[in-house]
Design a protein around this nucleic acid. Structure first.
Lengths: 133, 133
DNA sequence: TTAACGCATCAATAAATATTTATGTGTTAA
DNA sequence: TTAACACATAAATATTTATTGATGCGTTAA
């Protein structure tokens, strides 16, 4: 596969995550499958807006749907996506502390990073075993 | 810190990565610091466009600059960002294979994921130790 | 000081994206 | 079949973002 196409795909994936409201929705789904109504209620967003963002996430292969009677349940296609979010969270905190330290210069906060990575690796492996069944 | 603000920050971070050309630039920088001209040459993008994207990346705290005589060198603020890209790459491949298998139904490709995670963890830890010096 | 080079910025345009309001579609229960 | 509910979609608007071409600003070398 050409590198350009790969960049395009990765960019598209990041674009799916590059929205405040979609992140809110994803964190909601991290606990398990939910209906649109539940997501609307828990995020405080309007129903059409939630539907729109869910569509984006579905296009990005990040969530999938399952209809049960009159309800449509949305769930993560891959649980490890949540771990990616956590990793990113840590990285963002990291980067902002680093940039701040340019000015404060001297402090060096404790880094939960290594431990987090270990845990993440574990969860990832587990998710993949789960998948191979 | 409020959760909403956190989502906003993470979304902004992803937005910095959510562009094909910026990914191309970042992969170029993964080998080390480079001048704008070098990036222009190696990506094939116009100079103002490269400058624009570098500005975005700098706002996102992903790169930083250092002036040396008449040249401006750009470099990654955190080498582990490249590892995040690799992880994402794997995840995207993963997701697209998964979605394809909905149709082909039966194949289950070998997953380099666990090994990758292990390597990534190692690199991350190393980068962090480096930082604490 | 002037010319050449490296890079940033500005103005203009095009394109993509988020959001709202209104409406349509499918499902269930009366 | 009709009413109510859950969700999707369409139309309209506002905002953001990518890209280009022209120009400005700082640095170096003549």
């Amino acid at each position: 596969m050409s590198v350009d196409i790969l960049y395009k795909q990765i960019a598209a994936f990041y674009r799916s995550l590059a929205d405040e409201n979609r992140l809110s929705i994803l964190m909601n789904l991290s606990a398990g499958a939910k209906t649109v109504s539940e997501i609307v209620e828990q995020t405080g967003l309007s129903q059409p807006l939630v539907s729109h963002h869910l569509k984006e996430l579905k296009n990005g292969l990040i969530v999938r749907t399952e209809r049960k009677s009159s309800f449509v349940f949305y769930e993560l296609t891959e649980p490890s996506i949540v771990e990616l979010l956590r990793l990113t969270n840590q990285l963002v905190v990291e980067l902002s502390e680093k940039s701040r330290s340019v000015f404060t210069s001297g402090e060096m906060p404790a880094l939960p990073f290594p431990m987090m990575m270990k845990k993440m690796s574990k969860i990832m492996n587990q998710a993949l075993k789960e998948k191979q069944k």
